[in-house]
Structures are given as structure tokens and as C-alpha cells.
Design a protein around this nucleic acid. Sequence first.
DNA 1: ACTATTTCCTGGATGC
DNA 2: TGCATCCAGGAAATAG
Length: 269
Amino acid sequence: MPELPEVETIARGLAVRVAGDVIETVWLGSKPEPLKSPATEIEETLRSAKILNVRRSGKHIVFDLQSLGGVTSAQWIVHLGMTGRLLVCSPETEFTKHTHAVLRLASGRELRFIDPRRFGRLAVIKKFAPPGVEPLAVSPTEFAALFHHRKTPIKSALLNQKLLSGVGNIYADEALFRAGVRPRRRAASLTGDELRRLHKGLKQVLQEAIRLGGSSISDYVDSDGQEGFFQLKHRVYGREGEPCRKCKTPIKRVVIAGRSSHYCPKCQK
DNA sequence: ACTATTTCCTGGATGC
DNA sequence: TGCATCCAGGAAATAG
């Protein structure tokens, strides 16, 4: 389940592999396609475009494109959803089920979009702007202001992409543990000190996860097929009933807004 | 303007 | 063993 660190890892890997390459042909699978822009618009924008760069914005992968003559620029936006993958491979590689898009590159390779659960989305746009602020770039003051007067549980607020772009279920739980704050606490009820700890904890957990190549839960792998290792460092996520790494109290799991949330009842207030 | 709930989607895990 | 049911969750849509 790609969140910010996983998307960052994938985007970095893709940048190394396909930046500078040119998209020759575009194939989009039969309906229902996971498209946010009309299929013809995606085809026209991608065909004959040069990939200048690949990067992450929130949970989105942004391909910076330039038309062959260098006349126009555009962006191809890929959201991986839960199970989306972008694979760089040779044309001989066997076609796996749930392949929704195939780009033939001038280098002779293919860039394939595969997504069994079809929560992923493809779009083209002139200039992408994420809905919220970047968790790794936001200042402590800006961060605190996001939660001012919000009655929703802090866990839900962290997941709200209009506030912060890129935080998902794993890293929200992990950041709350590091801050010592329970997920059900109303966002507005957090003290200045708790907000500072949450801001610091979130940044730390995201940066450490990026360093370890993300968390490999279910079938996540990066663009090289490599697994991440951050799942070994999880302190609460997926550890219901297991002892807290700090105080040995069994980790609790509750459901908040339909999302499972994990916390230590002793370390988090 | 917010907040909460439902829906989409498939594969793997679980239960009888 | 086999079949049915449940569960995972990002984000959009819907309801309150």
C-alpha cells in the first residue's frame, strides 16, 4: 500500500531508469479503465513525449513531459492506489493480469501500469498541484495551524489529503505513537507541545522509511522489484496484541472512520 | 464549511 | 477440501 515513502522510492527508481527516454506508443486497456482524464487525451499527451523527470508529489507520481519539438510541456500523473505498480521491463516480459497501460519507450523497453484492485488512477494535466501541504516541507507553525479548531480525530486529520499530502494509515499510526498521542483525540485538543512532537515524529518516520525503501506490506515492491524494509521498524502498525517496544503493554487496535488504528494504551495519551 | 459514512475493487486469509 | 464471507484502504461521492 504505497504511501509517501513508498511513492518516493518508486519515483526515484523510475527517474533513474526512464528520465530522458521517449514514449513512442501508448496502449490503454479495455474498460473499465482506471483513468481520470479521457483516454484519447492521455494517449495524445503521452505519445511522442520525452520524459524529462519523474518525481513524487504527495502520493502521486509526476512524470514531467515535453513534446518532441520541445514546444509544449505537460505532466502525466499516476496514483497507485492500493495495489498499483509501474514496471519497467522488456517487451518480452510476460503480460500479467490487470495490466491497464503499456508505454513503448524509444530505448526498446516498456513501462507498464499494473493494478489488480483498480484503485489507482492515471491522468494528464498541465501543472499538478497537490491538495495539501508536503509533510516533509511544512513548518511547525503551519503544521499546527492545520489542526486548529478541527473536531475530527487527529488520526482522520492526518489522513486528510487536503491538509497533508502523502500521509496514509501506516505512517499516521507510527507518527502518533512517536508523539505519544492517541489516534481518537480530537485534532483541536492537541497541545502545542503535542503538535510539535507530532510534526517531528511524522517527519522522522517518513524520512526513516524513505531511507529503508518503504514498508513492504502485502505485495509492495519498488520499480526494481525490491522490497522495502521499514515494516520491520513498525512500532504499532500491524502489531495488535504484541508488546509495545517501549513498555511491553499489548498494542491495541481500534477502527476510526473505517480505518484500523494501532496504538499503545500506556505510551499514548 | 465540516464531518461522517458509503462505495469502489480483488486477492488472500479465515471459518465452517 | 471447498465454498462463502470478511478484510485491507485511498479517495471520491454522498449524506447529514
